[in-house]
Amino acid sequence: MSRLRIPVGSQDHLIGPPTARLTFVEYGDFECPYCGAAYWEVNKVLAAMGDQLRYVFRHFPLTEAHPFAMQAAEAAEAADAQGRFWEMHRLLYENQEALDAESLLAYARTLDLDMGRFARDLSEHRFLERIRRDFMGGVRSGVSGTPGFFINGRGYLGDFSAPALLSVLQGGDVGVPDYS
């Protein structure tokens, strides 16, 4: 249970150099309050680890529990298509209480996206399949809820506060990356 089955690759959203010693993968849901709490902790981790860490975000929307999670994930992908994934990711997590269609359009406007294209990508559900693929990859890797974390391919089930994460990430025994 809980080994990352889908290697990190060019299809992923990632921050940090490919040569980083550590790869930290999160399966997240934009509407999940635990992911919302983890967002701030992960930011602290990224700031503290700098170039030592590569961070990957994959979608894991639990749409039955979170009715806005899928459209929020689609908005992140639509922003990605215009090169602004991480900015949208930030806006979504910092405004978790407002993920309705109108708010998503407002965030896109804030990012100065091509609005026609953004709205079309959402209404045509252009990225739905990609999001489902992320989700199923997570399920098959043993992700059972959100946020689901992997450190160098190994499932991390512990506390996700920044100090706890940093002590594991900086503490040594996190194995070697099983992908390049």
Partner: peptide
Amino acid sequence: EVNPGADGVLD
């Protein structure tokens, strides 16, 4: 206390 996930069932 551990959510077993669904990977085992799907496999």
